[in-house]
Deep mutational scan, measured.
Amino acid sequence: MEQGTVKWFNAEKGFGFIERENGDDVFVHFSAIQGDGFKSLDEGQAVTFDVEEGQRGPQAANVQKA
């Protein structure tokens, strides 16, 4: 798993971006967030995640709040 920081996340649209430790950004969809209840992330929040190849390039999977 990688570690990163939430760059931004739009809860209304259900997606955002995580900044990886290497400085690259990776797309995150709310469906990739682990846990119960409303799935959202806060700007600046530390997270761990896997990276999978999506239809439009790399995207975060198995996102967990650190």
Rank of each mutant, 00 (worst) to 15 (best):
M1S: 13
M1H: 15
M1D: 07
M1A: 12
M1C: 07
E2D: 10
E2R: 09
E2L: 12
E2S: 09
E2M: 14
E2G: 09
Q3C: 08
Q3D: 07
Q3I: 15
Q3E: 10
G4H: 01
G4A: 03
G4Q: 01
V6D: 01
V6M: 04
K7M: 04
K7Y: 03
K7R: 11
W8I: 04
W8G: 02
F9D: 01
F9V: 04
A11M: 15
A11Q: 13
E12K: 13
E12A: 15
E12W: 13
K13C: 07
K13D: 04
K13W: 11
K13S: 07
K13N: 06
G14Q: 03
G14M: 03
G14H: 04
F15S: 02
F15Y: 15
G16A: 01
G16S: 00
G16P: 00
G16H: 00
G16W: 01
G16F: 01
G16R: 00
F17M: 09
F17I: 08
F17H: 03
F17V: 08
F17G: 02
I18P: 00
I18C: 02
E19N: 11
E19G: 12
E19C: 09
R20L: 07
R20D: 05
E21I: 13
E21P: 15
E21N: 14
E21T: 13
E21K: 13
N22W: 08
N22V: 10
G23A: 10
D24R: 14
D24W: 10
D24L: 12
D25A: 09
D25C: 08
D25T: 12
D25W: 12
D25F: 14
D25M: 13
D25H: 12
V26C: 06
V26A: 03
V26N: 01
V26I: 14
F27D: 01
F27V: 02
F27S: 02
F27K: 02
V28K: 00
V28Q: 01
V28S: 01
V28G: 01
F30M: 06
F30R: 09
F30T: 05
S31Y: 05
S31K: 10
S31G: 05
S31H: 07
A32K: 09
A32W: 03
I33D: 01
I33H: 02
I33M: 05
I33E: 02
Q34A: 12
Q34T: 12
Q34E: 10
G35R: 04
G35M: 15
G35K: 07
G35T: 10
G35E: 11
G35A: 12
D36F: 09
D36K: 14
G37M: 06
G37W: 06
G37H: 06
G37A: 07
K39Y: 06
K39M: 07
K39A: 08
S40G: 08
S40R: 12
S40T: 15
S40L: 09
L41H: 02
L41G: 03
L41M: 06
E43S: 14
E43R: 15
E43N: 13
E43P: 15
E43Y: 15
G44Y: 05
G44K: 08
G44C: 06
Q45V: 10
Q45W: 09
Q45P: 02
Q45Y: 05
A46H: 14
A46K: 13
A46C: 09
V47D: 00
V47E: 00
V47A: 02
T48H: 07
T48F: 12
T48C: 07
T48A: 07
F49I: 02
F49K: 00
F49C: 01
F49V: 01
F49Q: 00
D50R: 14
D50N: 15
D50Y: 15
D50K: 15
D50S: 15
D50P: 00
V51C: 06
V51P: 03
E52Y: 10
E52K: 13
E53C: 09
E53P: 13
G54V: 06
G54S: 12
Q55G: 12
Q55Y: 12
Q55V: 14
Q55R: 14
Q55I: 13
R56V: 06
R56G: 09
R56T: 07
R56D: 06
R56I: 06
G57Y: 05
G57K: 05
G57S: 06
G57V: 04
P58W: 10
P58C: 06
Q59T: 08
Q59G: 03
Q59C: 07
A60T: 03
A60I: 02
A60S: 03
A60K: 00
A60P: 01
A61V: 15
A61P: 01
N62S: 06
N62R: 10
N62L: 05
N62A: 05
Q64P: 01
Q64F: 12
Q64Y: 11
Q64E: 08
K65S: 10
K65A: 11
K65C: 07
A66R: 12
